[in-house]
Simulated scan of single mutants.
Amino acid sequence: MSHLFDASRSLAALEQDNTIVAVIEMSQAKWLIAALVPGLKRQPLKKLDADAPALLKLLQRWRDEAGRAGHTIKRIVVAYEAGRDGFWLAR
């Protein structure tokens, strides 16, 4: 019996205790990044210049903060807008 591919179903469970969920709103000059970070009561929000290394540094900082709160981060999930640079940035 063949199974059809269903893109609406996730192949991996979202484990909220060890996953950072980051959302990026982009413009040409600035990026606004918000996140859900396990172990943090606040929901971080940061505006950065449009710079991929700065974004990676920010995500690492949030990963370290989660670690200090007792949550080892195994995965970072990124949501982004479909236009402009979102696709290459997430890769």
Rank of each mutant, 00 (worst) to 15 (best):
Gly67Gln: 12
Asp49Val: 06
Arg63Gln: 14
Arg61Pro: 00
Leu36Tyr: 12
Ile76Tyr: 03
Pro53Met: 07
His71Phe: 10
Glu65Trp: 10
Leu56Arg: 15
Asp49Cys: 03
Ala66Gly: 03
Ala66Asp: 05
Ala22Thr: 01
Asn18Glu: 13
Lys46Thr: 14
Lys74Arg: 15
Val37Ile: 04
Ile73Phe: 02
Pro44Cys: 06
Glu65Ala: 15
Gly39Met: 04
Gly83Gln: 01
Gln28Pro: 02
Ala34Phe: 00
Ala54His: 01
Leu56Lys: 15
Ala82Leu: 06
Asp51Glu: 08
Glu25Lys: 06
Gln60Ala: 15
Lys41Cys: 08
Trp62Glu: 10
Glu25Ser: 09
Leu40Gly: 04
Val21Arg: 09
Leu32Ile: 05
Ala52Ser: 11
Arg63Trp: 05
Leu45Ala: 12
Leu55Thr: 07
Met26Asn: 02
Lys41Arg: 12
Asp51Ala: 10
Arg75Ser: 07
Val78Pro: 02
Tyr80Phe: 15
Gln28Thr: 07
Ile24Gly: 06
Arg63His: 11
Met26Ser: 14
Leu40Gln: 14
Ile76His: 03
Gly67Cys: 07
Gly70Arg: 00
Thr72Arg: 13
Ala69Ser: 15
Ala50Pro: 03
Glu15Pro: 00
Arg61Leu: 13
Glu25Thr: 04
Gly70Ala: 05
Arg75Trp: 04
Arg63Ala: 13
Leu36Gly: 13
Lys41Ser: 13
Leu40Cys: 05
Val37Gly: 07
Leu40Glu: 14
Ala22Asn: 03
Arg75Gly: 02
Leu40Ile: 00
Ala34Val: 02
Lys41Met: 11
Val21Met: 11
Leu36Thr: 11
Lys74Tyr: 10
Glu81Trp: 02
Leu58Ile: 05
Leu48Val: 01
Ser27Val: 00
Leu58Asn: 08
Lys74Asn: 15
Lys57Thr: 15
Trp31Gly: 04
Ser27Asp: 09
Ala35Met: 05
Gln16Ser: 14
Leu55Glu: 01
Gln16Val: 12
Leu56Trp: 11
Trp31Pro: 04
Leu40Pro: 03
Ala79Ser: 14
Pro44Trp: 03
Arg84Lys: 08
Ala22Asp: 03
Leu55Pro: 00
Leu36Ala: 14
Ala50Asn: 08
Pro44Ile: 01
Val37Leu: 04
Ala66Glu: 04
Arg84Pro: 11
Gln28Val: 03
Ala82Asn: 09
Ile33Gly: 02
Ala82Phe: 03
Ala82His: 09
Arg61Met: 11
Leu48Ser: 04
Ala52Ile: 14
Asp64Trp: 07
Lys47Tyr: 01
Gln43Tyr: 06
Leu55Asn: 01
Ala50Glu: 00
Leu58Ala: 07
